[in-house]
Design a protein around this nucleic acid. Structure first.
Lengths: 225, 225
DNA sequence: CCGACTTTGTGCATCGGTTCACAAAGGGAT
DNA sequence: ATCCCTTTGTGAACCGATGCACAAAGTCGG
């Protein structure tokens, strides 16, 4: 039994957290198009999920809808943003300024969501000193200094696989507890540190698996489905 | 008792499929270091998962281990590769040659896993004709031709959000049934088409959520956890 | 002020996935 | 050949997530 206006339930399911950014994106689009109010059904369609799931997700944040009407777009944007921590400014450092690091530095989706690329760091003297996306590329020796002085709390690892663990250890020692890893290695970190990984080739491999199935499977089993 | 070569269970759980590439990566590393045999425990550590989960995952492919010994690295690499469809050559087209598209074209992880970038396509006359990663950038008008003639079965969408759905519709009409989408939009496609999406800003937002929690949560609730 | 209509929020059944724990299977030593 | 040791493969309990279906809550027209 909980008090009726107890929105702050400390335990939001992980699956819900992963979908909130999706809702937020859909809501931003609607706000831009001047839509003031949206039903769970419409928002669900825009976000590509089932409406019951959406309502349950939102119910974890609190009771922000109006029965018979729907959700106020602006208000919901604010509530989700606040829950995700996007109402504050996050300083991000990108380590590894290869093709991927460059793409990330230029990626508009970061800035528009409360993230600020505060530093670009690389080990290659060839790129150190270059200006990318308006930022000076700094030498890896400056890593700890940069993190400390600019209040970097999230680090994006876009280094080669071989360098990732060493850089990871250093940024953790420098106090960082959130890492987004693009290098194709399993990082070993203390429990207190959050690592999310994105491996582009894994996604392709999963697609290949399903594609193969459609084509008849590895042994060309001739089942109709 | 099942016949020893009855590996083909048509229903491999989605969660398992998503982990197979992880095992494969770990196994490749071991093969390179000359390791011939590996236990589920060791492989699990290398892949960053629980060993019981790993064994259950592998059991869906068949009985490829030897009790008391472990798994033969080479053999397991082959079996997983085959299951994922990586023993064949997949032609991939990348549409949208901005920063991200460029990074993807140069990404080594594709080629090394049986994927071949067969075409780069863009709408901007400024980039059409450029050579990137040894490939000529072709005009979007050629999209259908390129897909048909080079046997492209997987398309990577790295276009701006506004263009993604239109390109998506075209590649589907051209016969493609597997799409990897980097554009921050929900694509609407027939059920027969597989879409996997990667949204870089979503991953960062999830990190921000947890980071905020560590720092005390949105209302600075002072609970120890 | 009331009654019909809309849409939320949620209890409940269900499902897929994870983890535990152990019997079965194989290897190697004696 | 037999026993002991290691490690797999899996039955079963558990856990979180999903989706249905509906009562509760609110709006709006008359």
């Amino acid at each position: 039994m909980k008090s009726p206006s107890q929105p702050r339930d400390r335990g939001i399911p992980e699956a819900t957290v992963a979908r909130l950014p999706l809702y937020l994106r859909a809501l931003h689009g609607m706000a831009e198009r001047g839509i003031a109010t949206v039903s769970s059904e419409d928002l669900a369609v825009a976000a590509g999920v089932n409406s019951a799931k959406l309502r349950k997700d939102l119910s974890h944040l609190g009771s922000y809808g109006t029965r018979g009407v729907g959700y106020d777009v602006e208000y919901l944007v604010y509530q989700i943003s606040r829950e995700l921590g996007l109402t504050q400014d996050w300083a991000v450092a990108i380590v590894g300024v290869g093709n991927l690091g460059r793409a990330l530095a230029n990626y508009g989706g970061f800035v528009s969501r409360g993230f600020r690329v505060a530093a670009l760091v690389d080990a290659d003297p060839e790129v150190v000193g270059d200006t990318i996306a308006g930022l000076n590329v700094e030498h890896i020796d400056e890593l700890e200094t940069v993190i400390g002085q600019r209040g970097v709390s999230i680090v994006v690892l876009a280094t080669p696989a071989a360098a990732a663990q060493a850089v990871c250890d250093r940024v953790i020692a420098a106090g960082v507890t959130s890492i987004l890893n693009f290098a194709p290695v399993v990082l070993s970190v203390p429990d207190s540190v959050d690592v999310r990984k994105v491996d582009l080739s894994i996604e392709l491999q999963i697609l290949a698996f399903h594609e193969q199935r459609k084509a008849g499977g590895p042994l060309m089993a001739m089942d109709g489905q």
